[in-house]
């Protein structure tokens, strides 16, 4: 503080007036691109090799190392390929429940193995007995199995293959040929019952359900197949 009162204020005001005419330091961002140093680590990105193939092998080492679980990956895209997600698993729907379970310390059910989960095979045995284990009456057997379970579980198909002596591929082919036979519970295909919708469907399946539901609405009830679904 100077001896003359007010001199400090006057000198400060002279300083601000000098700054008034000095060149400005603001970076005009949208016009001039920001300088990002080569070492900048703020952006996660996946690298591609010279053929344009994704280098990531989904080995999960990065996700393992990440302390706050901000890296996670998973999911299948509409063409059945692996799609790798970056970002917190809460941010994309198909892994949300799984993430919550994992954070709670519980085991995460894998929907891919749901079809192979053990089921009660008593009805299948009864049907096979009734049809006299005859592979030529396969359509009848399959229809009865579907009536019993609501759909065709993989374990039941294997049992049918074992009981009749027919190849599994043949049974599977027969089942896929007919429209009224299905491999998933009907609730999932209806797409309306949220409670019955499994937590994890592959991306393809969900898209297909949405697509068909939209298609049914658009076409109306005119051209439905025997199972009531759009062909």
């Amino acid at each position: 503080m100077s001896l003359i009162p007010g001199l400090g204020i006057v000198r400060g005001m002279a300083l601000t007036l000098r700054r008034f005419f000095q060149p400005k330091v603001t970076h005009l961002y949208p016009e001039l691109p920001a300088e990002i140093s080569p070492k900048f680590r703020g952006r996660l990105q996946l690298l591609y090799d010279e053929h344009g193939t994704l280098k990531c092998e989904t080995c999960f080492q990065c996700a393992q190392a990440c302390p706050i679980e901000c890296i996670d990956m998973g999911g299948v895209d509409t063409k059945g390929r692996y799609a790798v997600h970056w970002g917190a698993s809460e941010t994309y729907g198909e892994r949300r429940e799984e993430s919550a379970l994992r954070r709670a310390g519980r085991t995460v059910p894998d929907v891919a193995y749901e079809h192979w989960s053990p089921i009660d095979l008593g009805p299948v045995d009864a049907i096979l007995h009734e049809a006299d284990h005859d592979p030529s009456r396969l359509l009848e057997i399959l229809g009865a199995t579907q009536a019993a379970y609501g759909y065709l579980p993989v374990a039941a198909l294997k049992r049918i293959s074992f009981g009749t002596g027919a190849w599994y591929a043949m049974i599977y082919g027969t089942a896929t040929y007919y429209d009224h036979l299905r491999f998933e519970p009907p609730a999932r295909l209806a797409g309306s019952d949220k409670a019955a919708t499994p937590a994890l469907g592959s991306g393809r399946q969900r898209l297909e359900v949405d697509y068909l539901a939209g298609l049914e609405q658009a076409i109306g009830s005119g051209s439905k197949g025997p199972a009531g679904r759009v062909r």
Partner: peptide
Amino acid sequence: DSNQALLNENEIFV
């Protein structure tokens, strides 16, 4: 130093 000159000598601030 120049930035501080605005405050260090300002009577109101001191």
